[in-house]
Design a protein around this nucleic acid. Structure first.
Lengths: 255, 255
DNA sequence: CGCGTGAGTTGACTAAAATCAAGAGACGCA
DNA sequence: TGCGTCTCTTGATTTTAGTCAACTCACGCG
């Protein structure tokens, strides 16, 4: 498996404003891999040899300490991950695990670093990608520390709505236990949070959710552009704001 | 005030492996500014025109939502901040405020971006700096979500000890209320946490702390290289690991 | 010297989230 | 069809952190 030029890869903001030359040199070293669900791609503390690009499926990034575990983010296509470790040629600070069957492009870390050194445009593209990731984490921390569980859920639902077109019906993209982890709470508490939001017009039916009283929900959630990334989903080549594109921001409330 | 070439600036990893040429072009646009304590340098949501480099003093980065406030990090010299916003030419996601009298170098964002585009080595240096910041945030989140208040304090004390040479006596570099904010708890709870650590040989006397039973404290704290950054303090030009140097990591347990 | 201010501590109380336990429903598979 | 597994939910309980209030102490200042 060795695609030099998937359209999806070319569409990556990482390569958008980079010469074909560099682009080819970098992707030339890449391997496309398929992984089954629930596979650990990378373990905390491991040295990182590849930059990963998620093309299909879902990947969870998690951290561990003393048999406790926390979800840092859940990625959806198209996203890169562990870029920072690649740039520094350092060990991974978090583990990566597939949540479903995934299609992942693996790009040699050496190639990344070398081409950055030789092509300023590419290095700039990487910087922009990294900056977006950084800002995604800042949003995550603010979301986590400033809001309570119910508020996080409310905002998650609102940004999910925004990203999926704005109707009053939305569809949860994850199992509820995964959503709970993403929102930094237990499945039990997520259940209760949904129950609480019932009072604000939120009706849940499996993975389908109707936001009845949008106004009420918004008054509770108080969405904030400095926490929630309301970027529309994938208007290919949004150009102006790399952040829209970058790694950690596809998911809703927590990024 | 317009120093083209402070030694401190030259010592920045950001410029370490960059040509004098680029280095001069970038710092040529810089202004050295002094600020009194408790001054807001930058407000959440503001457009960012400068990269800030803290040369003297302490700066707190904080986030706000609905009249709640959280401290994201406290910077000590030498550190850059809001680099990500500069790279993307985007609005700040967090506010910056001086905790004491500060000496800060302000570098034009335009100059940064332009020189990145023209000098690959500089762009790489920025990428490494950003990567370090990113990883610092990952550590912060793991510290926050995986550990309880007492554990965070215990680890903070241990990494502070490591950074200040390893004796059994350490000196807290912040007021306790600031430390509390940094560790993500209230001053009241910090007090109680110190009281709890009394059982582990921790004796507090104002800002002076003695770690009596190091072994016990370590068994409680379970420090982890994937959360706590035990980098020694400032062996100028550590080279190998840019992370040691970069922005958010000077502080102990939370980064 | 006396006083006001603010940091730090301590205790009682409240709020929020995790944990424990049990049960309902969906799904895959023999 | 029946069984086991797993998700999700609900309730009771515990743990943890935040809030409110009072008090001490050190410091600066008139």
């Amino acid at each position: 498996m060795r695609p030099t030029d998937t359209p999806k890869v070319r569409a990556l903001p990482m390569f958008a404003s980079v010469s074909d030359d560099t682009s080819n040199r970098v992707t030339g070293t890449a391997y496309l891999q398929r992984f089954p669900a629930n596979t650990t791609l990378l373990l905390e503390g491991d040295p990182v040899d590849f930059l990963y690009v998620l093309l299909e499926g879902q990947v969870e990034l998690q951290g561990t300490w003393k048999d406790k575990e926390t979800t840092l983010t859940i990625l959806r296509p198209v996203s890169t991950f562990i870029l920072a470790a690649v740039v520094l040629d350092a060990d991974a600070l978090m583990s990566a695990r597939t949540l479903e069957r995934c299609e992942i492009l693996m790009i040699s870390g050496d190639a990344i670093r070398q081409n950055m050194a030789e092509d300023a445009a590419f290095a700039v593209a990487i910087s922009r990608e990294l900056s977006g990731c950084y800002r995604g984490l800042v949003r995550t921390i603010k979301n986590q520390k400033l809001r309570g569980g119910v508020e996080r859920l409310a905002n998650y639902l609102l940004t999910l709505r925004a990203k999926s077109g704005g109707g009053e019906n939305i569809h949860l993209p994850h199992e509820k236990r995964v959503l709970a982890a993403l929102l930094g709470m237990t499945p039990e508490n997520l259940s209760r949070a949904f129950a609480t939001l019932g009072g604000y017009g939120v009706e849940v039916n499996g993975a389908d959710v109707r936001l009845g009283k949008l106004r009420d929900l918004e008054r509770l959630a108080r969405p904030d552009p400095l926490i929630d990334n309301y970027a529309p989903r994938a208007p290919l080549l949004a150009e102006a704001d790399a952040e829209i594109w970058s790694t950690e921001h596809q998911r809703a409330g927590a990024a």
